[in-house]
């Protein structure tokens, strides 16, 4: 029985927003694979999203062409070594009695039974954990000091439940970006032009400068 397109479109929309997981995610992927209308809806949502974020819409059609070529090429490739005793599939791997990977010539893994390698690996792991721990401890101290310095510049504001603000990055060129934030920044540039420096310099600045690609 065919599902109404509205329901499929809603699922694709949720997929585009990154809100699906588990069975719903699998169902949306099946929709994309089997239903050309669903694939078209997916492309439209991305184009709309890019326009809202004031970015050039990405070129999904060429991606699909590339994927098609890639799949054909992959199908033409000779078989790769598979898990011993079974012909293919990740889905069957859990039911396999023997999970040893077969090697050319049938030789066992060289250091499987050599105790000194295990000793060396264990020692190195301990050293690595120590180094990482010390580094993280140092970073948390630096971050705390930066956060403190920022909050001291904050004006006195009466607040019942002050939130915990975490400083990510101030004056470097790097930002942890997400599409939604890009969309709001674009809106700020478009509709936040209430500055005396906005006409024409600010307009030229906003029309010239776009956020770096992620």
């Amino acid at each position: 029985m065919n599902e109404p397109h509205a329901a499929v479109a809603e699922r694709i929309s949720a997929l585009t927003d990154g809100q699906l997981d588990g069975i719903e995610f699998a169902q949306a992927m099946t929709d994309l694979h089997r239903d050309p209308l669903a694939a078209s809806t997916w492309r439209v949502y991305h184009i709309l999203g890019d326009i809202l974020r004031d970015r050039e819409p990405f070129q999904m059609p060429s991606d699909l062409v590339f994927l098609e070529r890639f799949e054909k090429r992959l199908a033409a490739e000779p078989n790769w070594p598979t898990l011993s005793g079974q012909e293919g599939g990740v889905a069957q791997a859990n039911t396999m009695p023997d999970t040893t990977v077969s090697m050319p010539g049938g030789a066992a893994v060289a250091n499987a039974s050599v105790f000194r390698w295990k000793m060396l690996a264990g020692g190195l792991s301990t050293v690595l954990i120590g180094v990482v721990g010390v580094t993280l401890w140092g970073q948390s101290e630096v971050q705390t000091s930066v956060q403190t310095s920022v909050l001291t510049t904050m004006p006195s504001v009466q607040s019942v439940d002050a939130p915990q603000f975490v400083v990510k990055e101030f004056d470097a060129g790097f930002m942890v970006r997400d599409p939604q934030l890009d969309e709001l920044m674009a809106a700020h540039q478009q509709f936040g032009g209430h500055s005396a420096l906005q006409v024409p310099t600010g307009f030229l600045r906003n029309a010239t400068f776009k956020e770096p690609p992620r």
């Binding site: 809100q19 603000f165 975490v166 990510k168 990055e169 930002m175 939604q180 920044m185 956020e211």
Partner: peptide, 21 residues
């Protein structure tokens, strides 16, 4: 699902952003 980075305070050049629930 979408709003997961509460309290993030970031900057690019002169522009800063801040999120809060």
């Amino acid at each position: 699902a979408r709003h997961v980075r509460e309290g993030a305070l970031e900057g690019l050049g002169a522009t800063h952003t801040l999120t809060r629930r």
